[in-house]
Design a binder for these strands. Sequence first.
DNA 1: GGTTGCGCACTTGTATACAGGTAGAGGTGG
DNA 2: CCACCTCTACCTGTATACAAGTGCGCAACC
Lengths: 226, 226
Amino acid sequence: MTTTHLASTPRQSGARAVYELLRERIITGTLAPGERLTEPVLAATLGVSRTPVREALRLLQAEALVVELPTGGVRVAPLDVADARRVYDVRARLEGLLARDACERAARADVARLARLVDLMDVVRDHDEEVLRVGGQFHREIEALADNAWCSALLRQIRGHVDRYRALAARERVGTTDHVDEHRAVADAIAAGDPDEAERVMRAHIDRSAALAERALTPPPAPPPT
Amino acid sequence: MTTTHLASTPRQSGARAVYELLRERIITGTLAPGERLTEPVLAATLGVSRTPVREALRLLQAEALVVELPTGGVRVAPLDVADARRVYDVRARLEGLLARDACERAARADVARLARLVDLMDVVRDHDEEVLRVGGQFHREIEALADNAWCSALLRQIRGHVDRYRALAARERVGTTDHVDEHRAVADAIAAGDPDEAERVMRAHIDRSAALAERALTPPPAPPPT
DNA sequence: GGTTGCGCACTTGTATACAGGTAGAGGTGG
DNA sequence: CCACCTCTACCTGTATACAAGTGCGCAACC
């Protein structure tokens, strides 16, 4: 971590707490898409004054988790399934860039650590829960290696929205085998010191996740005859 | 413009005005990197109360144009030249994605319009000022065609930072000829309906811009003997 | 003279008070 | 019965008031 001047301060003010809480609730769907958020109600509910609530709403607004109403005030950002693809498209590019950067900075020990994570993922490949957990760890590891604060900051925003869609697709069916293989491909590219390949493979990986998410998000059309 | 639920509201409240003003001043360098911003001073200067100032600062904070101090309060985000490359890296991916989307949506008339912009750019190729202006228009045109609100929103943030570095490199020396050619390559790829190529070429274009900016930002080392 | 301790001024964070404006409900007239 | 108008209640945006914490300077003491 050399160039860190964003996201440097973990201070917990009341406003920050409100922000975190609302963010969580929006992402998990506790606060429904399109729901109007009124400051007095939120303030009363959370036991603070309107001021910290407003601060939190501004932060959320900048993240597009809430949208401004023409008349003032905000509501929880609507969830348009058609937009999911766009969100994943952006995520694919950002994570691809991270994979490239990680590749260019990874030391031998880092490569080994990534390999271990993939192996572990392979071991637990039958337990979706674990696959998801270890997989997430893999992505975070790459993010840490990349040490690209800019990309990370943007990715954090995008991830919030990705997680919204995930929460919507109740149980995301992970193509476990492919998932592990794709991660291994990324790890291999990094091990081989091939940044172009690392970026390409990571991007392809996210693209495939996007396709799965897209399917999970559009079950209505026609339940295929078993 | 079909899927627009972000950036939909142009309401001009005082807070918004403060935000726009401070943003402008930070980007142009009127407010120096690292400078401490105190709410009472800003409020008095701008003739408003602390409340709208705080709102504006939160927005700027979410954009990383100001950074939180450990003790509370904010200062203008420092400008680390080493980070310029990272910012351009992200921009390259985002604009690349936009080029792809634009390619997939462009109608014949759109293609013609892009071609005209490139031709115009070629005509004025000797006037840097004009090249920059028309070039910017070209990029905005592609952004509009792409109709990818997500990408646009993130790009807006990144552009703010790009512009900071630009303002720093007082007179960005545009490799005019290359610049025009690169734009033409993008337009051609879109005309040919080749999204992969459009993305690739656009990304390469920004990468080259990054290299130029990087040179412009590091004049100290050694003035090459003419 | 250097160092240490105290005190002050300033700043942030939060709460409250106030004015303008909007939407919605209800009543009245056609 | 429907449409229009009015009135009310609420919500946002802004300003101000208040409390706590921090850093800095000054002065006294070693």
